[in-house]
Structures are given as structure tokens and as C-alpha cells.
């Protein structure tokens, strides 16, 4: 059921966490989110039970692009969730 926008997100996250790659991933995710969870009548938030990580415990889905563009730790966190077969 993967769509093209999600494939773009995965492709962008395969690169090392350089500022260019992070920006590309942020843009890809922003495009993807226009047609996914953002449509639901709710406030979806990506959460985790980590401790002492360099990324927040909770990131509203609509703020994922911003976090991807600015936080290399969060970029790598998303990378391991989204693109497990490559990381």
C-alpha cells in the first residue's frame, strides 16, 4: 500500500545525516504528510519510551519535517524506523 510519496521519504532517509539530506527528507515527509495522517481529525504524535536520547519523546506528526531538517539524532531515529532493511 506504499505510495510514491512514502517511497520518496524512504529514499531520502537512506542518505547519511548531512544538512542537505535532512532538508530533502523534511521536504519529502512534508509532501507525504499532506495525504496521510494529516488528513485525520486528530493530533497524531510520534512517541517513544527512550531515555537520554537526542530526540524528543513526542513529536506531533505535522512537526516531523521541521525536526527532520534540524535534528540529526531525530533524522537517524526516523531512518531506523522507516528504512530498516537498509540501515
Amino acid at each position: 500500500m506504499s505510495n510514491q510519496d512514502w517511497e520518496r521519504v524512504k529514499e531520502a532517509l537512506r542518505k547519511p545525516a548531512t544538512p542537505e539530506a535532512m532538508q530533502e527528507a523534511a521536504e519529502a515527509y512534508a509532501q507525504y504528510s499532506k495525504v496521510s495522517l494529516g488528513k485525520r481529525n486528530s493530533r497524531p504524535t510520534l512517541v517513544n519510551l527512550g531515555k537520554g536520547t537526542g530526540y524528543p519523546h513526542a513529536v506531533p506528526v505535522d512537526r516531523i519535517p521541521e525536526e527532520l531538517a534540524t535534528n540529526p539524532e531525530f533524522y537517524n531515529f526516523m531512518k531506523k524506523i522507516v528504512d530498516r532493511e537498509k540501515s
Binding site: P44, N48, F77
Partner: peptide, 8 residues
């Protein structure tokens, strides 16, 4: 990590 999406 244990991760999921929740509705705030």
C-alpha cells in the same frame, strides 16, 4: 526503541 503514533 518502542515507538508508536498516538492521538494527543
Amino acid at each position: 526503541d518502542y515507538v508508536w503514533v498516538m492521538d494527543s
